[in-house]
């Protein structure tokens, strides 16, 4: 009898200990669930507003990543606002940033923009504004970070010449529109550089320039038209950001890879594989993460009252099939 009581007691003790331990574990897990809701992490010291066109393009997403990493180092919170394709929306977002009493604004404006007043209001409210890529010099913004369009164009020409043989080549030229279907001024500058540099090259013939909105689908559409209209096409230069991917897709769909050389600006993630596989012949990378980091760093400097240069060039680099090994 005693033995059976001892056995029962022993088993019950073990079972109680195990179930009690598991219960405590479950309790602590549940408590964490509950407390996690009530726990607040440390607040950010600064609040910066970043205004971008959209959050779908890989360029802008990389830019945001770079900016957030940099903001973390400075103890700043980034508020992201996207204006999409609505024309007047950047202005609204600039005003919203002012109403939100943000500490600083980093804005990627459309190429043709008229948000001078909104930017000036921010500056008057003591909120520094830094423009990225596209400038508004009359707005009184604190600084501008941009790419050297002519420099990029020169790199594009180099990539074109490197990918071409001595045989005659016919290249299509795509430049960016300003949002209303007209050539943007950066696109015009790039076109001028391309044509000027290739003029002496007799074996390279440039087709009339086509104006295309930046974006995957506009690029895809325009490339299809180009192929349809020019059967002797041997290359396409895409001097429009965020568009190269669409053009490449058309070539893939129409099985024209290898027949038609493609050079452009950016590509998104996977550019090394694309070059290695011969999907494109070269691209000028604008390093969006560095853009975001540089933008946030410069803005923080301005927020803290430091002096920042009014103009700063953003880095870019050209990569082709030969240099992709180094890139890896």
């Amino acid at each position: 009898m005693r033995r059976s009581v001892s056995i029962i007691l022993g088993v019950a003790l073990v079972a109680t200990a195990i179930s009690g331990g598991l219960l405590l574990l479950s309790f602590s897990r549940s408590t964490r669930e509950v407390l996690a809701e009530s726990r607040h992490s440390a607040g950010a010291e600064f609040h910066l507003t970043v205004i971008l066109p959209d959050d779908t393009d890989e360029f802008y997403r990389s830019l945001v990543r770079g900016g957030q990493d940099e903001a973390l180092l400075h103890g700043a919170a980034l508020e992201l606002l996207y204006f999409g394709s609505i024309r007047g929306e950047p202005g609204l977002l600039l005003r919203q940033a002012r109403w939100m009493h943000t500490d600083g604004v980093l804005v990627y404006l459309p190429e043709h923009n008229s948000f001078t007043r909104e930017i000036a209001d921010l500056m008057r409210a003591g909120i520094p504004v830094i423009t990225l890529v596209n400038d508004n010099p009359l707005s009184g913004r604190t600084a501008h970070l941009g790419f050297d369009a002519e420099g990029i164009a020169r790199e594009l020409v180099r990539l074109m010449v490197d990918s071409a043989t001595d045989e005659p080549h016919t290249w299509g030229v795509l430049i960016s529109a300003d949002g209303s279907g007209n050539p943007g001024w950066q696109g015009q500058r790039m076109e001028a550089v391309i044509r000027a540099m290739l003029a002496p090259k007799s074996n390279i013939r440039l087709l009339p320039t086509r104006v295309v909105e930046a974006g995957y689908f506009p690029g895809e559409q325009e490339a299809a038209h180009l192929l349809r209209d020019h059967s002797q096409l041997t290359g396409i230069v895409v001097a429009v950001p965020q568009t190269l991917g669409g053009v490449v897709q058309v070539l893939i769909d129409q099985n024209r890879l290898g027949d038609i050389a493609v050079v452009g600006i950016d590509f998104g993630s996977g550019v090394e594989d694309a070059l290695a596989r011969g999907l494109l012949n070269g691209t000028v990378l604008r390093h969006p993460e560095q853009v975001g980091a540089t933008g946030v760093r410069t803005l923080m400097e301005a927020v803290k009252g430091g002096r920042v240069p009014e103009y700063s060039d953003l880095d870019y680099s050209a990569v082709d099939q030969r240099s992709v090994v180094g890139l890896r």
């Binding site: 607040h40 992490s41 440390a42 607040g43 950010a44 609040h47 970043v50 959050d55 945001v64 903001a71 973390l72 103890g75 700043a76 919170a77 980034l78 508020e79 992201l80 996207y82």
Partner: peptide, 12 residues
């Protein structure tokens, strides 16, 4: 605001 945004799409 927290450094990490609580809202979606980077909103505080």
């Amino acid at each position: 605001s927290d450094i990490v945004p609580s809202g979606g799409r980077g909103r505080h």
